[in-house]
Design a protein around this nucleic acid. Structure first.
Length: 726
DNA sequence: GGTAATCCTG
DNA sequence: CAGGATTACC
């Protein structure tokens, strides 16, 4: 089996999970649009949809050894060079020539050593034939060429370059920004696949929603979590899958490394023979060595003589040649390690970034996860040191960092849009996901558009996303948590495949817990769903986290995971500032919510006696403020000489409303329902009448008013139920 | 007795 | 907004 075939297959195996984990914002927007059109909403999908969810939706067999041409044709067209793989393949070219020319040049059908190779080759051929027929192995122009003749080996090089280009492009696509797909309209097949996928999602959501709505909502406090068992099981499964996929990824890496070593050990045995074949091979080896040394950041090869230099000619000496081989092998190994490490890390980063790119600020994530940008520069050193070698770090792709930055900057403005970021006392070690409080819950439009809350996406963090938030949420809610109410998830992150262990990062499809940005402007197609009630069993999660963290720490290829998981251990529960904000907004509808209502509308809160009391206390405080304001303004009206209650009205311009709005809707990003104005006016009238009739002399004169007001509660919009953060 | 609402205080 | 005290209700 030839090295590039192995690389090729391996890369193609990695590709789907890359795609599955990397989804760009435009895709999400597109998805959102489609969802709206279909009146369905995005949700966590089961893993079964993983493959269909890939950009290559229509190629579910992508994971199989027999790859369809389309699986890599598309990436191929988008990118050009890939130094690392280029070097590897170039080297493999020499190896092949030296080892067994006929073996390879007989064509794919003759390659019987491995069905996988044969399939791959055939697929290669078919894939290339259309656009690259000149390089086709089986094409007429392709003939076994003598190694010594640079001219004659041109067809070979063409073919190999074609393959190399594909591998490189795949690598590049994996390593680079998935935004490449953004620049074009989604293909029809993709769209169709997506639509069908979303239909499945909708059904899934509906089921989950129904399940959630059956959750006990009575007030009997159930600290153990009435609905916890199944959810905990789900979380169990997700964590387990996550671990399995991590291991799968590691295994793939190891396998590839071993195969590389195997191939090159084999190569060593033929080294002398090859070297006798003439200067051409030697020349190419020199080129490769030199370029490898360049790519490997030169620790081992930095002193490598320049191409064609006198010193290089001496390399034909056996001892030196062997030494070189050893070093090349080592270097190649390191190169591969480094490259794969980078790719894996980038996959991880992509996962996080795409989660956060759903309208989230990414900067915190970048600071947390060694992003590819970082890795290729300063971070590379760390990785090298971790690996004990010096995996070459390919110079940063000229395109990639900008694309990342673009995507980051695209949402960067969300970073600044935290005028109302809650800073309330909050727990401590790790902040709960700071959800954007900025949602207009009413189905109507917001009073006015607030540019700062106009993200490109439906949901959006108003404050920088804490680095642990996503992973915290992942473990808290599980990869398949129904975030229907928070349907900001990139489609890619909602894919997973239970029956495929080859999608290691699919279950990293973290659901970010974000708040709806502008419900008014983006009628949320998620009314069906609701946030899965969190009955997190914290000790369990901690255990799982520990496992994951241990894995991550043991695996130097996953520094980002290691770092991230380290933070997960501090997951805490309870009400967070966003819950408070939500409660305040709910007050516009209900002044006297029952505990059942609270439980219904805070589905992401694990209710216990303390939490319930706290929530009730919140509303009590809200009422207190509300009545104080009413009394104050009623007395003021009397002082001001208002002699008719009919002259006492509450409008959005009135001082009373402003005071209330400032208290419950400080950011003023919520469209206060008109009903609240009516209730406020009624309350004001009640106070006015009571005071004007001197009923306030009675110590309990307010009770009558309370009795009236408590009947004026209105129903809460569904949006409150479906989203934990508004 | 338990729960929750209100009142009061910080 | 939380904590404590008081009160009301079941």
């Amino acid at each position: 089996m030839f090295i590039y075939d192995k690389i090729y297959i391996f890369i193609l195996q990695l590709l789907p999970l890359y795609y599955s984990s990397c989804m760009d914002g435009s895709r999400k927007r597109e998805r959102s649009r489609v969802q709206q059109a279909h009146k369905i909403h995005p949700v966590g999908e089961n893993m079964h949809n993983a493959l269909q969810g890939c950009p290559d939706d229509d190629k579910p067999e992508l994971m199989l050894p027999c790859f369809r041409r389309n699986a890599y044709d598309e990436p191929l067209a988008s990118y050009s060079n890939g130094p690392i793989i280029s070097q590897l393949l170039r080297k493999s070219l020499h190896n092949k020539r030296a080892l067994d020319e006929s073996h390879y040049y007989l064509g794919p059908s003759a390659v019987s050593s491995s069905a996988v190779v044969a399939d791959s080759s055939q697929e290669d051929r078919s894939s290339v034939s259309s656009k690259d027929s000149a390089a086709d192995v089986g094409s007429p122009g392709f003939h076994p060429s003598t190694v010594a003749s640079p001219e004659a080996e041109r067809p070979v090089n063409d073919h190999l370059q074609a393959k190399r280009a594909r591998v490189e492009n795949i690598i590049r696509v994996m390593a680079g920004s998935p935004n490449s797909r953004l620049h074009g309209e989604p293909e029809k097949g993709e769209m169709d696949a997506r639509d069908s996928r979303e239909c499945r999602e909708a059904r899934e959501v509906y089921r989950e929603n129904k399940r959630k709505q059956r959750l006990p909502q009575h007030q009997d406090h159930n600290p153990s979590g009435g609905s916890g068992s199944s959810l905990d099981n789900t979380k169990d499964e997700e964590c387990h899958k996550l671990k399995e996929q991590l291991q799968s990824m590691q295994k793939l890496l190891r396998q590839l490394q071993e195969k590389f070593l195997q191939v090159y050990n084999q190569e060593d045995s033929h080294r002398g023979e090859r070297e006798d074949r003439g200067g051409c091979l030697e020349h190419d080896n020199l080129i490769q060595s030199k370029e490898l040394s360049y790519l490997t950041n030169g620790n081992a090869f930095e002193k490598k003589p320049a191409r064609g230099s006198p010193e290089s000619k001496d390399r034909t000496k056996p001892a030196e040649g062997n030494l070189l081989n050893l070093r090349e092998t080592k270097n190649l190994q390191d190169t591969l390690k480094g490259e794969l490490s980078r790719v894996v890390n980038e996959c991880v980063d992509k996962v996080f970034k795409n989660v956060s790119s759903s309208g989230l600020d990414l900067s915190p994530l970048r600071s947390m996860c060694p992003s590819p940008d970082v890795q290729t520069s300063g971070g590379a050193a760390e990785i090298r040191s971790q690996q004990g070698g010096c995996p070459p770090q390919e110079p940063p792709h000229p395109v990639e960092p900008p694309s990342h930055q673009r995507s980051l900057e695209g949402h960067g403005d969300t970073d600044a849009q935290s005028p109302q970021d809650q800073t309330e006392a909050l727990s401590l070690v790790v902040r709960k996901p700071a959800m954007a409080p900025l949602c207009s819950v009413t189905p109507t439009t917001v009073k006015r558009p607030y540019p700062m809350h106009q993200p490109a996406f439906q949901f959006n963090y108003s404050s920088p996303l804490h680095d642990t938030q996503i992973l915290e949420h992942l473990l808290k809610y599980g990869p398949h948590t129904n975030f229907s109410g928070l349907s900001c998830l990139p489609p890619s992150l909602e894919r997973s495949s239970p029956d495929s262990g080859e999608l290691p990062w699919d279950t990293l499809s973290m659901r970010s817990k974000v708040g709806p940005g502008h419900l008014g402007h983006h009628p949320r197609p998620s009314s069906l769903g609701s946030v899965t009630v969190d009955n997190l069993c914290l000790p369990h999660v901690k255990m799982e986290c520990s496992d994951l963290q241990g894995m991550a720490e043991r695996n130097p290829y996953l520094p980002a995971v290691s770092v991230a998981l380290t933070h997960i251990l501090h997951i805490q529960e309870g009400l967070n500032p966003n819950h408070l904000k939500k409660a305040k907004l709910m007050f516009f509808y209900t002044r006297y919510p029952s505990s059942n209502v609270l439980k219904t509308y805070f589905p992401d809160v694990k209710f216990n006696r303390c939490i319930t009391s706290q929530l009730i206390k919140w509303f009590s405080n809200f009422r207190e403020f509300y009545y104080i304001q009413m009394e104050k303004f009623a007395r003021q009206a009397i002082v001001d000489g208002v002699n008719n209650v009919d002259n006492l009205s509450v409008s959005r311009d009135s001082e009373l409303f402003r005071a209330l709005n400032m208290h419950y809707n400080k950011a003023n990003d919520f469209q206060v329902p008109d009903r609240f104005l009516e209730v406020a006016e009624i309350t004001l009238h009640e106070f006015y009448n009571a005071i004007s009739t001197a009923k306030d002399s009675d110590p309990s004169w307010k009770k009558a008013i309370y009795k009236v007001i408590c009947k004026l509660d209105s129903d809460l919009p569904e949006e409150f139920k479906t989203s934990s953060c508004l």
